[in-house]
Design a protein around this nucleic acid. Structure first.
Length: 433
RNA sequence: GCUGGGGUCGCCUAGUGGCUAUGGCGGCAGCCUGCUAAGCUGUUAGGCCCAAAAGGCCUGCGCGAGUUCGAAUCUCGCUCCCAGCGCCA
């Protein structure tokens, strides 16, 4: 969330940002928030004055009792009797306003970076660069197959049975594709760990409080599975437990930046994606993902954002998958990130680029909610730090990209060179029937 | 899941209804001192009022409620940690 102090001191910055996003409703919210915050502070003043009165009287009682002046003590007690009720009333009024303030704060979006393009939808995203040569269907010289069609040819899984026992968007992976999934994970882990990232296996479930700290409220409805009868949610990415890993802490300045690379299975309801990518393993409820996460000082975050993107690009270069980088426009960026790059891989069968990586600088938006600050421990100055996250690889999508880009006429799949040492062979052969 | 013990400032720690929540370590600032040191003083949670400073006030003892004129302290619920028992890949 935004720093309330920023809103008090420089509301014009927030207003200009909402204008850039074209979010007229939230500009209204902002005006109301400013008003409510003013009311809140007035009421807080009242409450504090009353509490001060109570403290004074309470002290008089204590003094009188100490001096064995029973009459004086009783008089003071009488005077004190009605103060608690007054305080309760004032507090109730204040809390109501405070709730409204929090409501707005939880929903107002992060301040965007100046380079974020203005736009409504996908078509307004800006292509930053491309890598590799996206081969068209006709360049292959044979009838290309989608990963859904290739899957049974290599006996790589069973989608029908998964749908039967678990529902749509679930899958069984089998044989070489399981080993391929593991090989990809190991290769990517090696690449990222070599760059100084600390590997982390996080908990796959989080309580509500930390979860509210790391994501917007819409995610709870659209993405998260709730565990029945418990205050727990299945994580939709390891970004979330890793961000929460330093919740409520003050981190020593010298330790920053801290770089983590998380590995987890991710669980998503995909409630907002009805009818999209319903076939195959491109969009599924459960998948393995390796995620990079950085805690850093504000002045370093934009440099590190580019670095994260470069790391993700390196992974796809090693996999020999052509891709492009896009700068996500205001209409698509969401409320948490200040700037977001997507890496989209070329999919020859679909004749289009599809999202593989999302790389965000969340500036202080997550750290303010989670209460993560940095500074000299013990000294006065503490500031919210910046958090960044980027996919390194999500395995089902990587498998789709590999299968479709590196397929051969006989239904075999060529394994990218860098992956061969991890996978143990250079091809996945079709099974004979 | 059960029983017991615990959670106080960055770390350790005192505190059984009313004195301003102790004291130490570490950090920071200053002073002193010819010498990688020692010593001394201050400071080291959050918020509000104030243009700012000076200053003032409030909150804060795992979280939340309650009792009370007044709660770190008493009561209830939750949570996490430790020990033991049970269960278990």
């Amino acid at each position: 969330m935004l720093d309330i102090k920023l809103i008090r001191k420089n509301p014009e910055i927030v207003r200009a940002d909402l204008q850039k996003r074209g979010d007229i409703e939230k500009i209204q919210w902002l005006e109301d928030l400013i008003q409510k915050d003013k009311e809140y502070r007035e009421l807080l003043g009242e409450v504090e004055k009353l509490r001060g009165q109570r403290n004074t009287v309470t002290k008089q009682i204590a003094d009188a009792m100490k001096n064995k002046d029973i009459q004086k003590a009783n008089e003071a007690k009488k005077a004190a009797a009605e103060i608690p009720e007054k305080i309760r009333q004032a507090e109730q009024k204040m809390e109501k306003i405070q709730e409204k303030v929090k409501f707005y704060l939880m929903r107002l979006p992060n301040i965007l970076h100046e380079s974020v393009p203005v736009g409504k939808g996908e078509e307004d995203n800006v292509v930053v660069r491309t890598w590799g040569i996206p081969k068209k269907k006709e360049d292959y010289g044979f009838e290309m197959k989608s990963h859904v069609d290739l899957l049974p040819m290599i006996d790589g899984g069973n989608l029908e049975k998964a749908a039967e026992v678990s529902g749509a968007r679930f899958y069984y992976l089998k044989n070489d594709l399981v080993l391929l999934d593991m090989a990809i994970q190991r290769m990517v882990m090696d690449i990222i760990v070599k760059k100084g990232f600390i590997p982390v296996y996080p908990p796959f479930m989080l309580k509500k409080e930390p979860y509210e700290g790391v994501t917007d409220l819409g995610t709870f409805e659209e993405a998260l599975y709730k565990i029945e009868g418990e205050d727990l949610y299945l994580i939709s990415t390891s970004e979330h437990p890793i961000a929460a890993m330093h919740m409520g802490e003050i981190i020593e300045e010298e330790r920053l930046p801290i770089k983590y690379v998380g590995l987890s299975t991710c669980f998503r309801k995909e409630a907002g994606a009805h009818g999209k990518d319903t076939k195959g393993i491109y969009r599924v409820h459960q998948f393995n993902k390796i995620e990079m996460f950085i805690f850093c000082k504000p002045e370093d975050s934009w440099k590190l954002h580019e670095e994260l993107l470069k790391n993700a690009e390196e992974v796809f270069q090693k996999l020999e998958i052509p891709y492009r980088i896009i700068n996500t426009c205001t209409g698509e960026i969401g409320i948490v990130a200040a700037k977001k790059y997507d890496l989209e891989a070329w999919m020859p069968v679909q004749n289009s680029y599809r999202e593989m990586v999302s790389c965000s600088n969340c500036t202080s938006y997550q750290s303010i909610r989670l209460g993560i600050r940095y500074g000299k421990i013990g000294s006065g100055e503490k500031e919210s730090l910046h958090t960044l996250n980027s996919t390194a690889i999500a395995t089902p999508r990587a498998i789709v990209a590999i299968m479709e880009n590196h397929q051969n006429a006989d239904g075999s799949i060529t394994i990218p060179k860098a992956l061969v040492p991890y996978f143990g062979k250079d091809r996945i052969e079709p099974v004979k029937r």
